[in-house]
């Protein structure tokens, strides 16, 4: 019965079907640009999650005192301030990560996910729920980014490596594919688009299958 079917939709499933990046196509710019290695992916994911949680909390707190027609500038100022703070903090304490992510940290301001969640959820719901929503969205984004980076890094360079963002020291680096078999185009723009297309198609296929199962199971 439909209730059982709905309970079956665990977090993993939810992640794939309502994926903000591969399903709703939000925040694509940064996903394509950052996903060359997992270091950048995790760093960017954490930055976006922090901004998302804080912006959701702040927007939710002011939702009752903000008149409707100035709500966009208000949200923008809040988000821009948060992003600037994150940017300055990263530049000071994690300079390697800051150098790798470059202008995309500043572009978090226009990341559709953040303004989108502010408009769609945080402006309508209390602070606690908004914070949780921010966390969930942030985690989905980070995981999506991580998966894409994993694929691109392994196929494109053959090496899987992780460094400590605060000191730049390498935590581990392991070669999974010999140098001569590496598909170096995966690290270029073409590889980014290709990987994204395949992952988006995979999510769509999964979604179709689940919807078909749902209909068929009745």
């Amino acid at each position: 019965m439909s209730e059982n079917k709905e309970k079956k939709l665990g977090f993993g499933s939810q992640l794939i079907i309502e994926n903000p990046v591969f399903g709703l196509y939000l925040g694509i710019c940064s996903t394509l640009a950052i996903s060359t290695n997992i270091n950048n992916a995790i760093g960017m994911g954490i930055a976006v999650t922090i901004v998302l949680i804080l912006s959701n909390i702040l927007v939710s707190s002011v939702r009752n005192i903000t008149p409707d027609d100035i709500h966009i500038p208000v949200y923008i100022v809040i988000i821009a301030t948060l992003v600037t703070i994150v940017e300055m903090t990263m530049q000071a304490f994690t300079p390697d990560l800051y150098g790798a992510l470059g202008e995309f940290i500043a572009l978090i301001v226009v990341n559709c996910i953040i303004l989108g969640r502010a408009e769609a959820y945080a402006s309508l719901n209390p602070v606690g729920a908004s914070a949780k929503d921010g966390l969930m969205m942030g985690i989905s984004y980070t995981v999506s980014l991580f998966v894409m980076s994993l694929i691109r890094q392994i196929l494109g360079t053959g090496v899987l490596s992780l460094s400590n963002p605060l000191t730049g020291a390498e935590i581990f680096a392991v070669r999974l594919i010999p140098e001569s078999f590496v598909l170096s185009f995966m690290t270029t723009q073409t590889g980014a688009f290709l990987t994204f297309a395949v992952l988006a198609a995979a999510c769509a296929a999964y979604k179709n299958k689940v919807t078909a199962d749902d209909k068929g199971g009745k």
Binding site: I65, T66, P67, I70, P73, V74, V77, I78, A80, T81, T84, I85, M88, T89, Q91, A92, F93, P95
Partner: peptide, 24 residues
């Protein structure tokens, strides 16, 4: 509202800037 918001944000940013700029 906008004025107060911008004011608070400006001060906050100035503070963070003063902390991080020397490190950078």
């Amino acid at each position: 509202l906008l004025g107060v918001l911008c004011g608070i944000c400006g001060l906050l940013l100035a503070f963070v800037n003063s902390v991080t700029a020397p490190i950078i």
